[in-house]
Computed example of a mutant assay.
Amino acid sequence: MDLRQLEYFVAVAEERSFTRAAERVHISQSGVSAQIRQLERELGAELFDRSARAATLTAAGHAALGHARAALSAAGSVSQAVGDVTDLIRGRLTVGMVTGCTITPLFDALAAFHRAHPGVEVRLLEDTSDRLVDGVRSHTLDLALVGSARAEHEGLDAMTIVSERIVAAVQADHPLARRSSVTLRDVSAHPVVCMPPGTGLRTVFDEACAAQGLRPTIALEASAADAVAGLAARGLAVAVLSASMAAPHGGRLTARTIDDAPSPALLSLVWKPDRSPAAREFLRYGRRAFTGGPDDGADGRVTTTAT
């Protein structure tokens, strides 16, 4: 008895037809019949009642069906396990990262993964969050670290890393620095420097303004937080940043939370549910690096720079 015979047996049992079973396993009907006959001889019992138009199981056939399915499933598991190990010996892991992010935990996770699986080619690509999400959906990327205005991405699993309010950051002598509270209308009265479209922070800002019918003047755009802060520190515009982005520049900039923009800017690691073995393994290192906790699949948060 071999697995091929069991596969044909299960196909005939499920299709209730030798003809349809042959089409399903892509061989001739005579080939299926011959293999089933050989299996019956080895077992010493007929598995099908061939007297009717449909192929129906005999008592022996019913007794054998569950075991045949279990044997095929076990064989598939063996193949999957070997394939997973092979992929982790000489596979590839492609990770996306939103432009302008310097995420130390991500680099730590990549380094730990590389040390554990030196045969896997690791690639890191930068792009806008929108294009990164599309890349994960199309399997161009295994995982991606993206900025967004929402925690869920259709068709993807996600782990939220950062959730922060957006702030307006200005020079100490700027009119907004003297206010105890700042609104979107206050910010829109001045030229703005912000991240480019396609980043999570920009999406949060644009959606909040659109909800109030505001059309701020985006005078300057930069993909790096330090560049946005540096332009604001020179008095060129009001910087729209996340709280952690503005914090390192406290000596040059005064940050005010934008009161009527309550939706946070999120930084999330996203992946397809049917992820590759390499991606599945990398997630273990990612969860440790980002959350400092066990790699049990629970979501976690860590304070770092969101875009």
Rank of each mutant, 00 (worst) to 15 (best):
A54L: 14
V10E: 11
Q212L: 10
T254P: 07
A70S: 12
V32R: 09
G76T: 03
A172C: 00
A59P: 14
T86S: 12
G250D: 09
D186I: 08
A289T: 12
G200A: 06
A239D: 05
R234M: 08
M97W: 02
A112E: 15
S138E: 11
R123K: 12
S129I: 13
G155W: 02
G251Q: 15
L241H: 06
Q29P: 10
A112F: 10
V98S: 13
F282A: 15
M1Y: 06
H174Q: 11
L39H: 08
S77G: 08
I258P: 14
A208L: 06
S268N: 07
A54S: 13
A306Q: 01
V193C: 08
R202C: 02
K272E: 04
A172H: 13
A219Y: 04
P196Y: 02
D134C: 02
H114Q: 15
H117R: 13
L57D: 05
Y8T: 00
D173F: 09
S276R: 12
Q171N: 10
I89K: 03
L269N: 07
T254S: 12
V95P: 04
I27F: 07
A278Q: 14
S79F: 00
A278S: 13
P294H: 06
G100Y: 02
A225N: 05
A151S: 07
R165Q: 04
A172E: 08
T254Q: 11
P262L: 04
A60R: 14
D296W: 03
Y8G: 00
E46P: 01
S30K: 15
V85G: 00
A306P: 15
A243Y: 03
D173C: 11
H117Q: 03
G31R: 15
H153F: 14
A59F: 13
L3W: 10
C194W: 00
G61K: 10
D299W: 05
D260G: 06
A112I: 07
R280G: 09
A11V: 03
V187I: 03
L176Y: 12
T291F: 02
T203L: 04
R131W: 00
G96Y: 03
L72H: 07
A210K: 13
C101P: 00
R275Q: 04
L236A: 15
R150S: 15
A71T: 09
G213K: 06
V32H: 05
L47I: 11
A219W: 03
R50F: 06
R123S: 09
